[in-house]
């Protein structure tokens, strides 16, 4: 597979570059774009981004590994994030995490062998008023309990 953005995506890259006085600052948005397209950031993808923004691979890799939301390995099609931080833990978020983990047979930062689900125990996602909460890919689900989460998961299959 050739690693290359389409014309439209390159236009988007240029739009991001134009927002900042230095090209390097567009790195985070471009990494987001790349992850959206390829699902995760392989070394080849990072090399491509580095060339695009005239940066060293070391710098791009340094940034990508610093931020937890950039995936450094393939994740599931549905990335399930369960918050277990204090507000969610007080309302049994940790129990939900353990039960989901058992149900899917995977642990923190792992994906199912068929590549459909991955699980992450996340830190506070800023939805404490709706604790306990989970997020599936980009969507928040608040005030949930384990049966509800398992039902959500079964619908995704």
């Amino acid at each position: 597979m050739e690693i290359k953005f389409t014309e439209e995506e390159l236009a988007e890259v240029n739009r991001h570059i134009s927002k900042y006085p230095q090209k390097q600052a567009a790195l985070m948005p471009v990494l987001w774009l790349a992850q959206h397209k390829w699902g995760w950031l392989s070394t080849d993808v990072m090399r491509y981004v580095a060339e695009l923004l005239e940066l060293s691979l070391a710098h791009v890799e340094g940034v990508a590994t610093f931020y937890t939301m950039y995936f450094k390995k393939p994740m599931g099609k549905y990335h399930i994030q369960v918050c277990t931080n204090v507000s969610c833990m007080l309302r049994k978020g940790d129990v939900i995490f353990n039960q989901v983990s058992e149900h899917l047979g995977i642990k923190h930062n792992e994906a199912t062998p068929d590549g459909i689900f991955s699980l992450e125990e996340v830190e506070c996602m800023g939805a404490c008023g709706g604790a306990p909460m989970i997020a599936i890919n980009e969507d928040f689900h608040e005030n949930v309990d384990t049966p509800q989460v398992l039902e959500l998961i079964s619908k995704l299959k």
Partner: peptide, 9 residues
């Protein structure tokens, strides 16, 4: 401009 972070407290 809006800038999106990537998960770092």
């Amino acid at each position: 401009y809006v800038h999106k972070g990537a998960g770092a407290y």
